[in-house]
Design a binder for these strands. Structure first.
Lengths: 193, 193
DNA sequence: ATCGTTCCCTACCACTTGGTAAGGAGAGAG
DNA sequence: CTCTCTCCTTACCAAGTGGTAGGGAACGAT
């Protein structure tokens, strides 16, 4: 029973790092001192294993990221965004894999895994919708703002390794330090003057 | 001579759509009614072909995205961002592949292709640095702001297909319509009140 | 002791991968 | 006509892919 969890963890790591096609069943199995047939025994096919990893990610996302009993205040959205930022950095592998899933979606469109994000997005939009400063805005504006802020977070979370190579580790640490403050301004800003 | 360009175009499409491991030489070749050995004849190996695609992308990015003779005004950065947004939507395949490259960077770290983005980022940061509203801010804040805005653009550009499936084509069209206006507020906002 | 179940292994398979070797069609040069 | 060079072909290969078949070890239940 515990083997399933170990497999899921290793699969997440490798799928996030190398993508669905870049990671092979054999590699994942070797990482755990198993054979790939152990994975097949537990999950049936590679696709199903990948699906199980996605389900695990979305469950984490749903239980941790959105607090349904969010206090209704002018900064409710900004607060939620701050929490999501911290969580995103903490679960960077989840973020990496979800980003890959976003890119691969054209082919995998009809499959499961994708719509797990929908309630998450809708929840955030709802938070913003109840913000007094956003009462005047239309639906498209609200949703676009949510997505822009989310994009800023995820893109950065996925870029740190590259940025460290491109500049320096210290440079990225500086960015990480002032990121929440700047992110808050992004999240709050945008209402008509 | 013209074959090289055709190969590069097809390779860009498939690499962007399916990733490096997801796209095979054979698929790319069949798309052009050639055999994979034609590609090998022109580019040597798959890695080199991929590298050539990256070089082509970065050249497009350098010549089109940053206008060195940008007018120095309070909105110079926001103007540049607007242009980059339009260009990003126009060259969505380039954006897709650069995003994939960002994700794969851990493995490909030492290789070329990555640092092409550096002058682009630095140029944008420089634009913001000369903005009178940003004179007080420190380097990390400036760069973080640049990266957040860029993240909002790229994440959205890469998400449209998924969003269309998750909601509707009309929903995404609405977002695209109000995106530039909201993006401008993101880019301008963020200075201390 | 024996049966059944869970969990994982070895052995094997068809297929695809990137890449090599060698040769041919076409064109221009002498 | 022939030599050469560019561009691309067919034929082939070793390695790796996901997946099947079947067996064996451990263990609890009867």
């Amino acid at each position: 029973m515990e083997t399933r969890q170990r497999i899921l963890a290793a699969a997440l790591r490798l799928f996030a790092e190398r993508g669905f096609y870049g990671a092979s069943m054999d590699q994942i199995a070797r990482e755990l001192d198993l054979t790939k047939q152990a994975l097949i025994h537990h999950f049936g096919t590679k696709e199903k294993l990948y699906g199980a990893v996605l389900v695990a990610i979305s469950e984490r996302l749903m239980t941790e990221a959105i607090q349904p009993t969010e206090v209704e205040s002018a900064s409710a959205f900004a607060d939620a965004v701050s929490r999501i930022y911290l969580r995103t950095l903490q679960h960077r592998e989840d973020t990496l894999l979800l980003m890959r899933e976003l890119l691969d979606n054209r082919r995998r469109a009809a499959q499961a895994g994708t719509w797990y994000l929908k309630p998450f997005l809708d929840g955030l939009a709802d938070l913003l919708r109840r913000d007094p400063n956003w009462q005047e805005e239309d639906e498209a504006s609200i949703f676009t703002h949510v997505y822009q802020v989310l994009g800023a977070i995820n893109y950065f979370a996925v870029s740190t390794a590259t940025l460290e190579n491109m500049y320096s580790v210290e440079h990225v640490e500086d960015m990480q330090e002032c990121f929440p403050e700047r992110l808050r301004k992004l999240a709050m800003g945008g209402v008509d003057t």
